[in-house]
Design a protein around this nucleic acid. Sequence first.
DNA 1: TGTGGTATTCCATATTCTGGAAAGCGATCT
DNA 2: AGATCGCTTTCCAGAATATGGAATACCACA
Lengths: 282, 282
Amino acid sequence: MSNVIQVGSALGGNVRNVRENPRASGQVQSLSRALWLMNALAECPMGLSLSEVAHRVQLPTSTAHRLLTTLQNERYVRFDSERSAWLIGVQAFQVGSTFVRSRDVVTMARPYMRRLMEESGETVNLAMFDHTEVIYVAQVECHKMMRAIAGPGGRARMHCSGVGKAMLACAADELVDELATRHGLPRETPKTISDADALKADLAKIRQRGFAIDDEENAIGLRCVASIIFDEHAEPLGGLSVSGPTARMTDARIPALGTLVRKIAQEITREVGGTVPVELAT
Amino acid sequence: MSNVIQVGSALGGNVRNVRENPRASGQVQSLSRALWLMNALAECPMGLSLSEVAHRVQLPTSTAHRLLTTLQNERYVRFDSERSAWLIGVQAFQVGSTFVRSRDVVTMARPYMRRLMEESGETVNLAMFDHTEVIYVAQVECHKMMRAIAGPGGRARMHCSGVGKAMLACAADELVDELATRHGLPRETPKTISDADALKADLAKIRQRGFAIDDEENAIGLRCVASIIFDEHAEPLGGLSVSGPTARMTDARIPALGTLVRKIAQEITREVGGTVPVELAT
DNA sequence: TGTGGTATTCCATATTCTGGAAAGCGATCT
DNA sequence: AGATCGCTTTCCAGAATATGGAATACCACA
């Protein structure tokens, strides 16, 4: 059997390997080359000229052109004739987005997020956890004027975001210490909780309530309440939050909003086949 | 071996063409075939077995396997060995998602707008939504003498413009109330719908028809029909309209024009990788 | 009218892809 | 155990298919 594993997936690296020994890892030269072209185009959202891409992947322009037009026929790339630039095409987008769809919380959560937005009137975010950070992966914006916040793709620290704290509350307190020593608890705003013990105290309250409150700890003027979506092992799968300007997210509204996020997060948990840990159940 | 033509089998039109004359449209057989494989996988988010995909795109399993492993090396597809199923991979997602960043609705819509102008003989506008207002961002003028309307850059209120109403029709009726209380529904002309309930009734008709009609509600002597372009979450991305003097935009023409705008708006939706919400489809 | 930067097309060549066949692999049944 | 099925994976000879240098076409700008 030809040893397929040898090639690492660091892009730069394997390009050379394959180049030196075409049959080593892939099998179909022309296909590999076409994919390198797509990778190159993906790195430049504004597009590249034929000769530029060709140069980047070290191919003769004629070959690159032939591959690109083939990709174009299937709409995996497109050509902007105004600027004579090659760009990623619709089909690549549509095909690629089914990656997420396959077993994904995002799609399943969307209808619930919309309902949450409508019931709360505020912007709703869905976040996932990536090691020590929070990544926002989906958003349903409210109709109101004042909408803070960056869209999907954004990141936040654990200790100063609603979903981050909600997640920490599900873990052992030792995680806080580890986080504090490893990354510190940097202040994002004057209100950021940057002391480990104070944070632990907050987490205790979160466990009790079933939802976290971020009171301008991440950005001034921005409040948010958050709760967790669990997987089948009752472990955090993602976080759901409602956020808005402090002016609208008044102390009076917070309890009701919190209960609402918690409720919807639980519904999503059920939808994705997860279970809420016993200590948090209702 | 090698006789590719052997199968006169019934395949999708272009598939057959390419099969019979590989050089005709694409250029690189193996690449086209690989893309068909990806397309097939994209249609089944739960994945397909090798033999299933191979059968779907009418390729020998050995060939399909070779192509798939090549795709796998570049992480465009992945293989779930538990279920022995092939699925779309991360790289396809990452590469594909740059499409959204680079997509420019205005340029992508332009050829469609031109066609719409030619088929209708009237001026065509593309508009985007800015919270509570409509902004016209592109225009293709008709050749006729009588051309009303301000060019791109202009703004209009939601409740008294074709695209605005078409957009409202996609949202919950509560938005109308909010709009009414917050900004009122000021009369631009005697025909402007300035009553919330009357507006809601009109929106219902719009939802049913699939296009909106502005009958001198924004400017006297000016009629327009409009429909919506949707993004990948089936949410409004922009609006497309055909407008002209009432004298030419007769009651008799409106239905045909409406269907036309709706059709072209749907085509643009597909072009930009969006999806028409189910309730509006076809 | 020329010049430099592109994108396209052409074509002979042999490299690269092809697909049938056969070997593996892991079930489930007798 | 052994046999049979359905699937994946590998092999290999043969030629169809991809290749890339060179020629051509295009376009903008001077």
